[in-house]
Design a protein around this nucleic acid. Structure first.
Lengths: 288, 288
DNA sequence: CACGACCAATACCCTCGCGGTATCGCTGCC
DNA sequence: GGCAGCGATACCGCGAGGGTATTGGTCGTG
């Protein structure tokens, strides 16, 4: 006999509807996002609750809120929908006649390592085309989950490798980046506490997974180019891996930070990947 | 703005249908398994292929076979369906008024560690009920993937922790288990090669993930009780972690195997688990 | 306190997607 | 050449799922 049957599972449509409602917390807006009318959406959610035998939303006629079970479903439904999307994408890519590999990496990070990796891999016998997908912070995990990428370069502890297979490639110290001429610029080293205490030079705010920025005093940044420009203008400071130093200019000063957590560059891929090309890329990376 | 929309995703129904066909390689039998007629199933698969723009099956009017893209989809669809099933189960369990934790472990393995863990956890303040789910080899990963369990005890390298978060708990040597009185029984130690060479005492065959047994000379076994009985009867030998020695009787002989791979017991849980109870259980386990 | 704005739920209708039965067409095998 | 096996096609009927109109309940507000 073969593997156990999947009977009477929830449909992806229902999960999509629920995610929309749970994110908007508003049937009308959710329906708009789904390009449908509000009543059928209300009914679909009710039906989902009936089928699961679980109350997912607290309705107060004025607003709705997630129940505990509802927030569990929100999280689980997102990963399930990601898995479905990944199945679709990977199948399409497997059928393409030119089976390249998509590598996701944050724009600006690990630039040198990335170029060395690409060169080394290209020199391997039987190497296939590698499409590099540069993206914002927090993105690569998502791309991997959704099957838009086959491998990714991540940076612990900034990124999370949970749910992937991975190999550590490189570990490095972090340094403070300050405007040239700043009082601290000539110090042999600074501590985390000192940098946090610089109210005149706030740390920047990076977008979260959902694209929104946390509250705080610092400027909003999307990538390191922006960040370094703001620092050069004397509007911010930052704590970054030291390998970024070759992207800096004379307007910047660098100070080692012995007590900042080290950053590890890892190469990660979805578990159970059977791609020979990914395996070879990983092997090449670990040998650098 | 919130996370990107999931537009026009494949429905779980279509994935279920495809998995059935891909596993049976026969539309008639697959339809039977799905309790439906064959024609709508054929059409559904055609429609899936059209929507994906990918040929999934080679049809030769006499038999069908998976294309490369088809086998990719088979693998990906299984994990996607597992994720959907997990979403459903975890949501239901989150809504239950008595939120226990389900711990999966292979029957007979790590018996002592398991009982110590349960005792230690039960003594913790705020401990919830732990339901232990004893299962066959290869099962625990599946139970975690499908949301039937919240944590599991696994044994590398027999089990794979790919796709989970995990903590190592204990590493041990393996030993050969032979019938008492066997020529090798009094040796100080034996090698893997020697055990493999015992044609009169074959190694047993364990069921694979799909429940079928590989070909070979050895007897088919489902658990360690069966196995040890067969060994006592002089019908087999085995290589097992040494912590199983207290489940043996006078009819068995144990010989250390220095060159067999060590076995590591790990506690594993689905990534991004937010269960406080699981976290506490893991913490308790690592402190044993 | 009454009126209006807002929002989810209900009522009702209609379309088309999905499943069922009957049949065809192809292929390999006695 | 005839038959058996299997997937594809043709056609039909039903009901799930979506649309419009409306209700009902709950806040703000003058």
């Amino acid at each position: 006999m073969v593997s156990a049957g999947y009977d009477e599972l929830v449909e992806t449509r229902e999960l999509r509807y629920f995610v929309a409602v749970a994110e908007e917390l508003h049937f009308g807006r959710a329906a708009q996002r789904l390009t449908m009318a509000q009543p059928p959406l209300s009914r679909a959610i009710q039906q989902l609750e009936r089928r699961l035998g679980v109350v997912l939303l607290h309705r107060t006629a004025r607003a709705i809120a997630l129940t505990d079970a509802g927030s569990v479903l929100l999280r689980e439904a997102r990963t399930a929908l990601d898995a479905v999307e990944a199945a679709e994408r990977r199948t399409r890519r497997a059928a393409a006649d030119q089976p390249g590999v998509v590598l996701a990496a944050k724009a600006g990070a690990s630039r040198e390592l990335l170029s060395k990796l690409l060169d080394a891999y290209a020199a391997e016998p039987g190497a296939v085309a590698v499409e590099v997908m540069l993206c914002g912070p927090g993105e690569p995990e998502n791309l991997l989950h959704k099957g838009r990428a086959d491998v990714a370069l991540l940076h612990r502890p900034y990124d999370t490798t949970a749910g992937f297979d991975s190999e550590d490639l490189h570990t490095e110290q972090q340094v403070a980046v300050l405007p040239a001429g700043h009082p601290l610029a000539n110090r042999a080293n600074v501590s985390l506490a000192e940098v946090n205490a610089l109210t005149d030079l706030p740390l920047p705010r990076w977008p979260g997974r959902d694209g929104s920025y946390p509250d705080g005093p610092g400027p909003q940044v999307r990538d390191h180019t922006q960040l370094f420009q703001l620092i050069a203008l004397g509007l911010a400071c930052a704590v970054v891996p030291e390998s970024l130093r070759n992207q800096l200019s004379d307007d910047h000063a660098i100070v080692p930070m012995p007590d900042a957590p080290t950053v590890t560059t890892v190469i990660a891929w979805p578990p159970h990947s059977k791609s020979k090309a990914v395996a070879k890329l990983v092997r090449t990376a670990t040998r650098l």
